[in-house]
């Protein structure tokens, strides 16, 4: 069987696996954004205790490999769930949860950096106009901060896509795991991984194009935000 025939026969399985990869990426980045925003706001605006809690969480998640976090959620926590009378997570649920919890820590740092890049005069101006602190954050700070964060957020999306391969370790059939299975079933090991690699590459290139386009669309003409030096 030629390489192309081989690709044709295994393609349905690979495409199904791509669906899982995209699902992991979407849940990871989406739920991670919500939690990451919350963590970033805790870091910047909450009292010292909450800020410290958010900081410890962020540092721990950013300092350890995603593999370990996936294993903790899939193997480490279930015995305790069982003790509490809860059902164990499926590998898909565990994978999604791990991706989201991990991505949240990275996104929190990006968003925090963006919030702090906006000059403090803006908050003072908003408050002096009679806005509450919440209103000021909601209508003045965040719309700008989220635009500043977009380029790093794009990077994070690509990272999330690439690192979704980590759930390989809990046997969830996404693209990497599928290629491993096909490799061991057919014996055409190198070719299987080449197909997976090309498919990842295609997704990354496509996604970067879309994000670059989104960045130009979301830009407000005439409003450029000077980032303060770090």
């Amino acid at each position: 069987m030629s390489f192309f025939e081989f690709t044709g026969t295994v393609m349905p399985r690979f495409l199904g696996a791509v669906g899982v990869t995209l699902e992991l990426t979407a849940v990871g980045i989406g739920a991670g954004l919500v939690l990451g925003l919350l963590l970033a706001l805790m870091r910047v605006y909450a009292n010292r205790v909450l800020s410290a809690i958010a900081n410890v969480y962020i540092q721990f998640m950013r300092g350890t490999p995603l593999v370990i976090q996936v294993l903790v959620i899939y193997f480490g926590l279930p015995p305790y769930f069982k003790a509490m009378g809860l059902k164990p997570l499926s590998s898909l649920a565990a994978g999604c949860l791990a991706m989201a919890l991990n991505s949240a820590a990275y996104q929190a740092e990006y968003i925090r950096g963006a919030i702090q890049a906006i000059s403090s005069g803006q908050m003072q101006a908003a408050r002096s106009m009679g806005m509450t602190k919440t209103q000021a954050v909601r209508y003045v700070i965040l719309p700008q901060a989220l635009r500043i964060v977009l380029p790093s957020w794009s990077n994070e999306l690509i990272y999330t896509l690439l690192y979704s391969s980590t759930v390989y370790f809990i046997g969830l059939e996404e693209l990497s795991y599928a290629s491993m299975k096909v490799a061991s079933k057919t014996g055409r090991v190198f070719e299987s991984y080449i197909i997976a690699g090309v498919m990842y590459l295609a997704m990354v290139i496509l996604l970067s194009r879309i994000l670059a386009y989104a960045e130009t669309r979301l830009r407000i003409p005439g409003l450029s935000i000077e980032e303060r030096g770090r």
């Binding site: 690439l162 391969s165 990497s176 290629s179 991984y193 690699g197 590459l201």
Partner: peptide, 9 residues
């Protein structure tokens, strides 16, 4: 554009 896991494999 390729995950570290796949590059290693």
């Amino acid at each position: 554009g390729i995950p570290p896991l796949v590059v290693i494999l």
